[in-house]
C-alpha cells in the first residue's frame, strides 16, 4: 500500500494544485466579492468535488485511457509528475496553463517514449473539445445573460432581496460547478493511474447500500487531494480572481460560473451522454477540459452580450497559444522525466 501512495504522490500533488487553482475559477467571484464566505465555499467545494469525482469521474478518464493506457505504476507516476512540473513551471513563468492540457501532453510524451501508437481519433476528439469548450461556454453565457436580464426586468425584485437570492444562486452554482469540476478534472489527477493502480484496491461495500470499486477509491483519494488544495491554498487565488481579473457583478458572476459548470458537466456526464444518445441527439465527448478557459469563454460571452465593448483579443490569443504550448511542453518534460526515471532510478515505466 505504501508503494501505491509513493507512486500516487505526483498525482496527489497535481490534485492539490488543481484544488488550489481551479476551485478559484468556480468560487473566485463569490468569495472575492464577499457574497459567500471562504469557509462555506471551501466546505461546499470539497464535498461536491469529491461527489463529482467518485460518481461521474470515469467518463473523461476513460478518454484519457484511450489516448494512452499507461500500464506501469512508475510510468503513471512519471507522467503525472511531468504534468505537475509543467503546470508549476508555466505558472511560475506566468503563462496560461491548464492541468487538462498538461496531462494530455504528458501522456503523449509517454506514448512517444514507449513507442505506443497514438490514438489519433482520441487525440482529435480531445483537441476539438478544447477549442469547442470555451466557445460553447460563451454561447451558454450569452443565452443565460438574456434570460436572466429579462427575468430581472419583469420581476422587479428589490435590490436587497435580489442580493439574498444571488447568494443562494451563487452557492448552488458553486456546488454544481464543484461537482462538474470533480467529475471532469479528476481524470487529470488520477486518470493516468487507472490502468496500473486501480486493480490494487479491493471493492469496499457500505452496508450493501453502495460499493466503491477500485477506480472510485482512486478517484476518492484524488478528490481528497483536491479538497486539501482548496482548503490550504485556494483562498489567495480566489481573492485575486474575485477582486482583480474579471470585474463582474454578483449576478454576472453567477452566469459565468453556471455557464462554465454546464460545459464541464456536458463533457463529463456519462448519464447525460447516454440520455442524449438514446434520444438520437448529438452527444458530447467525455473529455477533461480546462475550467479556466471555460470561465474565460463565459466572461467573453458576457462581453458579447453586453455589446462587445469589453472584448480583449489578447486573452483569446493567450488561450489559443495554450492549446499548443502546454501539451508540447508537457510532452517534452514527460519524455525527459521518463528517460531519467527509467535509466537513473531503474524503474519500469511501460
Amino acid at each position: 500500500m505504501s508503494t501505491i501512495i509513493i507512486f500516487l504522490s505526483s498525482g496527489l500533488f497535481l490534485g492539490w494544485s488543481l484544488g488550489a487553482n481551479d476551485a478559484a475559477n468556480v468560487w473566485g467571484t463569490a468569495v472575492g466579492t464577499r457574497m459567500v464566505s471562504f469557509k462555506k465555499a471551501a466546505l461546499v467545494a470539497s464535498i461536491f468535488i469529491l461527489l463529482g469525482a467518485v460518481i461521474s469521474g470515469s467518463g473523461a478518464s476513460h478518454t484519457l485511457g484511450k489516448l494512452g493506457a499507461i500500464n506501469e505504476l512508475a510510468g503513471a507516476f512519471t507522467v503525472a509528475l511531468a504534468a505537475a512540473l509543467s503546470v508549476f513551471w508555466m505558472t511560475k513563468a506566468a503563462l496560461p496553463v491548464s492541468t487538462s492540457q498538461a496531462i494530455v501532453g504528458a501522456i503523449i510524451g509517454w506514448n512517444l517514449f514507449s513507442g505506443s501508437v497514438i490514438d489519433m481519433k482520441a487525440l482529435t476528439k480531445i483537441l476539438g473539445t478544447w477549442i469547442f469548450s470555451p466557445i460553447l461556454s460563451a454561447v451558454v453565457a450569452i443565452i443565460l445573460y438574456f434570460i436572466i436580464s429579462s427575468i430581472l426586468k419583469h420581476w422587479k425584485i428589490h435590490l436587497i432581496r435580489l442580493d439574498g437570492m444571488t447568494r443562494v444562486a451563487l452557492l448552488a452554482a458553486g456546488a454544481f460547478g464543484s461537482y462538474s469540476l470533480g467529475a471532469n478534472n479528476i481524470a487529470n489527477v488520477m486518470g493516468v493511474f487507472v490502468h496500473s493502480a486501480s486493480g490494487m484496491f479491493t471493492d469496499i461495500s457500505f452496508g450493501g447500500l453502495f460499493t466503491l470499486n477500485g477506480v472510485q477509491q482512486l478517484f476518492f483519494i484524488g478528490g481528497i487531494a483536491i479538497a486539501v488544495g482548496v482548503f490550504t491554498y485556494s483562498k489567495r487565488v480566489m481573492m485575486t480572481v474575485g477582486a482583480g481579473i474579471y470585474e463582474l457583478s454578483p449576478i454576472t458572476a453567477f452566469i459565468v460560473v453556471l455557464s462554465s459548470s454546464i460545459v464541464l458537466f456536458l463533457f463529463a456526464s456519462k448519464g447525460l451522454q447516454n440520455l442524449l444518445i438514446s434520444h438520437n441527439l448529438p452527444s458530447f465527448p467525455l473529455v477533461p477540459v480546462s475550467s479556466s478557459q471555460s470561465i474565460v469563454g463565459a466572461v467573453i460571452g458576457i462581453g458579447i452580450a453586453k455589446g462587445g465593448k469589453n472584448l480583449n483579443l489578447k486573452v483569446l490569443g493567450r488561450i489559443s497559444a495554450g492549446w499548443v504550448a502546454t501539451p508540447v511542453i508537457a510532452a517534452a518534460v514527460a519524455f525527459i522525466t521518463l528517460f531519467i526515471v527509467q535509466n537513473v532510478f531503474s524503474q519500469v515505466v511501460y
Binding site: H158, I160, R161, D163, G164, R167, V168
Partner: peptide, 14 residues
C-alpha cells in the same frame, strides 16, 4: 431567514 431579514430592510428603505 434570509428573506425575512431582507423584508425588514426593504420596508425600512421604503
Amino acid at each position: 431567514m434570509l428573506f425575512n431579514r431582507a423584508k425588514s430592510i426593504e420596508s425600512s428603505i421604503d
